[in-house]
Structure formats: structure tokens, C-alpha cells
């Protein structure tokens, strides 16, 4: 039994996510961690932007804020500085957090406000119909790249590390235990913590690139203990003339951790209690 299920707004369930959507698995891990850590969500705020990922917060019975496209981190920053005692978790997607909201992401990392940002990365804009995202790998097909993506993808973790985030990690929906552990570590961290979670879009990205649905899609990424190999040329169907792009190995787990004062500490905000370590 997922103890986090008791934290859901039962009258809003079932959620709007598509069958087999990886976001649901990440949401499940998130509420599991919340249930483990907090007896009550009265002092927990979940802030989201726009997109499939961002709809997740509405189903969780906390202080939930579904904001505008890309701007969740700015709302969260204001909320956290106005109420430093709250635990603020930002749920965003790759389009939301790295496309339209990329500026807020790097600046939130730079400021080192004590909040946690979980980026649901499914390589596409799902809510609008499967368009090219800043995380779509080169050559992949989307509804706006009918001839394959000509551009390169962002590595969100490298981006926020360079911007000054003090905790950066990568997880994936396929490995819920690792994901749970990293969410916990991110919440434990004092300062801006960032988690890039690889999930799947079954309806658009998968279809366009023939990655299968449900568990096939979930298993479509070969994995090792420390890395995800996204080398999808192993898939026979995809070894057709133009084939699917070979994706680079992406490191998993905690990728960067450092220690510097949070903005709350520097501003000496009353009510802010820095976490240990």
C-alpha cells in the first residue's frame, strides 16, 4: 500500500494522465515520500507550472499552486521568502522548466533558495500534442519535427549545476526506489535541490518514435546501476534506414552536491530554520 495514497484528493481522482504515463509513477513516488516525511501537509506547498507534469500537484492534498507556464519557480521563490518556514516543492516539466521557464530555473539555482525542484522530463510537450521540447534528442520525431529534430537537447542537470544549484540528481520513473531515495535526499538538502526525472510520454513521443506503450515503453531504456543507456538502436523496429537516434549515456543518482548559504540565511529571514548539513 502506498501510504501517500491517503494524501490524494480522492474526489479529484482518477487523474488526467494517459494510460501508462510515467508521470503517474513519479507522482506515486513523490506522495510516498511525502507520507513518510510529513505527518501533515499543512506546512508543505507544491507549486507547479503548466503541462502534464504540473497537473500532478492538484491531486495532492497540500497547499497546491498551479501557476502559469514556466513560472512556477518564481511563484515558489516569492512564497518561500514570504513564508520561510514552509517546505516548498516545485513540480515542473521539461517544456515548462527548461523551455519557457528556463530563465527562472537558472536564477532559482543561482539564488539557492531552499526549495526542491522536480522536473518531469518526458522529452516532449505532452499537453499540447507532442511537440518538440528542449529535451527532445536529436533526430527524434515529434509533431513539429516531422523530418526529425535538427536541434540538440538540454542536459538539465548540467545546466542547473553550472547555474549554481547545490544539489543535482537524476532519476527515472522506471526505478521507483531510486527515485524515492533521491526525492528524500533532495528534500533533506539545505538549499536549491534539483531532480531531473526521466519519464515517458506514451501517447505522443512514444508513438511518433515507435517506442511501444505501457511496460514496453517503460522498459525501452536499457539501464545499468549508475547510468541509463538510451541507446535505442537496440530496438529492431528502429533500425530502419533513418533509424532512431543513439542517445548518450546519462549518469544517474546524485550528480552534484555542494554547500553554501541559502538566500534565506543570507537575508536573515525570521522563521527560516536551515536543515542540518
Amino acid at each position: 500500500m502506498n501510504p501517500g495514497k491517503a494524501l490524494l484528493r480522492q474526489d479529484m481522482m482518477p487523474h488526467i494522465l494517459c494510460p501508462g504515463c510515467g508521470h503517474g509513477i513519479v507522482m506515486s513516488a513523490l506522495v510516498r515520500v511525502l507520507a513518510k516525511r510529513y505527518a501533515s501537509l499543512d506546512q508543505v506547498a507544491l507549486v507547479a507550472g503548466i503541462g502534464c507534469s504540473s497537473r500532478v500537484v492538484g491531486y495532492i492534498d497540500a497547499n497546491t499552486l498551479h501557476t502559469t507556464h514556466g513560472r512556477a519557480l518564481s511563484f515558489a521563490t516569492g512564497l518561500k521568502l514570504a513564508r520561510p518556514e514552509l517546505t516548498v516543492i516545485v513540480v515542473t516539466g521539461d517544456g515548462d522548466g527548461l523551455g519557457i521557464g528556463g530563465n527562472h530555473l537558472i536564477h532559482a539555482a543561482r539564488r539557492n533558495v531552499d526549495l526542491t525542484c522536480i522536473l518531469f522530463n518526458n522529452e516532449t510537450y505532452g499537453m499540447t500534442g507532442g511537440q518538440l521540447a528542449p529535451t527532445t534528442v536529436t533526430q527524434a520525431f515529434t509533431t513539429t519535427t516531422p523530418y526529425g529534430n535538427h536541434e540538440s537537447a538540454f542536459d538539465a542537470t548540467a545546466l542547473v549545476t553550472a547555474a549554481g544549484a547545490t544539489f543535482v540528481a537524476r532519476a527515472q520513473a522506471y526505478r521507483p526506489d531510486l527515485l524515492e531515495g533521491l526525492i528524500e535526499q533532495a528534500l533533506d538538502h539545505r538549499g536549491f535541490s534539483f531532480l531531473d526525472v526521466l519519464t515517458d510520454c506514451t501517447e505522443y513521443f512514444s508513438r511518433k518514435n515507435q517506442l511501444g506503450a505501457g511496460s514496453d515503453l517503460l522498459f525501452s531504456q536499457t539501464r545499468s546501476d549508475t547510468e541509463i543507456s538510451l541507446d535505442l538502436t537496440e530496438w529492431p523496429r528502429l533500425q530502419e534506414p533513418d533509424g532512431f537516434p543513439v542517445r548518450n549515456l546519462m549518469p544517474m543518482g546524485v550528480l552534484h552536491e555542494s554547500n553554501r548559504p541559502t538566500l534565506e540565511e543570507v537575508m536573515e529571514l525570521p522563521g527560516y530554520r536551515p536543515k542540518e548539513g
Binding site: 501557476t67 502559469t68 518564481s74 515558489a76 516569492g78 514570504a82
Partner: peptide
Amino acid sequence: MGSLGSVLGA
């Protein structure tokens, strides 16, 4: 955008 976003969050 961030300015008014932070204001609304606060």
C-alpha cells in the same frame, strides 16, 4: 514575469 510571479507567490 518572474517579478509578478514572485509577488503572487508571496
